[in-house]
């Protein structure tokens, strides 16, 4: 189950979307999408639960994140670092 979306026909600058439960496998997909185009923002408002590995990718690559995180745990405890 992959929950990282980025439409290939999307306009430049269209955000990468994290949706629903983002399992460990999403970490690699997310990382390569961000590395391909480092300026692409990440929209995490619809993510309901994020695996540590996915969070680690965001922590490391520091993309621009859009909106409050849909995962209440991340939103409550980890936002300050995620948005830094």
């Amino acid at each position: 189950m992959m929950a990282v979306f980025h439409r290939s026909d999307a306009e430049p600058g269209a955000p990468i979307r994290l949706e629903g439960v983002c399992p460990v496998e999403d970490a690699e997909t997310l990382a390569s999408l961000i590395l391909e185009n480092p300026n692409t923002p990440v929209d995490w408002t619809s993510c309901t639960r994020m695996h540590t590995a996915v969070y680690q990718v965001l922590l490391r690559l520091q993309p621009t994140v859009l909106g409050p995180c849909g995962d209440p745990f991340v939103d409550a405890w980890l936002i300050p670092l995620g948005r830094r």
Binding site: V24, M50, H51, T52, A53, Y55, L59, R60, F73, V74, W77, L78, L81
Partner: peptide
Amino acid sequence: DDPLGLVRKVPGLLAVFVIP
């Protein structure tokens, strides 16, 4: 393992910091 998954289960959480 999902380390943050475990942290989610910690009762009475007051603060969490994640750094490399």
